[in-house]
Amino acid sequence: MNIFRLAGDMTHLFSVLVLLLKIHTIKSCAGISLKTQELYAIVFATRYLDIFTNHISPYNTIMKLIFLGSSFSIVWYMRYHKIVRRSYDKDQDTFRHYILILPCLILALLINEKFTFKEVMWTFSLYLEAVAILPQLVLLQRTRNIDNLTGQYVFLLGAYRALYIVNWIYRYFTEDHFVHWITWVCGLVQTLLCADFFYYYFQSWKNNMKLQLPA
């Protein structure tokens, strides 16, 4: 495992930890899109179907369990925890996320590496992950005051995929390891969707001002 992959995994892990910290200790999920969190739960559930059959390393298995467990517990907290759910911006979080699921599924059935159940589900998870951030970005744009933890969460989530792209380039040259073009395209789309956010995130950081996205 190279440094870029590790850094990518760690930023991904930190993004989840930041979100859990906000929910668990501050008991607030203000500014967080439940729609995006539900999509991530589906992403991990469909991507890690091989978790018990395809053993790579203890590291991989533990990380998969963390991402599965955290994504489903975040959804549970936001929907059912009696204090946390009160802070959910239900009226603002209106992106109809289910309309993303069907096109991703159809695309996965049409364009995949191999037409098997596990491969199609894996490809579906890539397509869905690429666009899963959209409800969160829409909610951010509607939120007047984005708190620090929410801003950091989205930043870390975007940085994770950007670092994975650097990892793929590195692996291409050093290991002769080819990542399928589907993975490349999805990773690029996912990172580009965050690029606009990155711009405003760095601006607010540079000027030491509160993060706010233009309407």
């Binding site: 991904h12 091989d50 395809n54 998969k64 590496e113 191999k114 994975y164 990892n167 080819f178 990542v179």
Partner: peptide
């Protein structure tokens, strides 16, 4: 070599 089926990333 392609990662054909072996997904070692997360």
């Amino acid at each position: 070599s392609s990662n054909g089926g072996l997904k070692d990333e997360l």
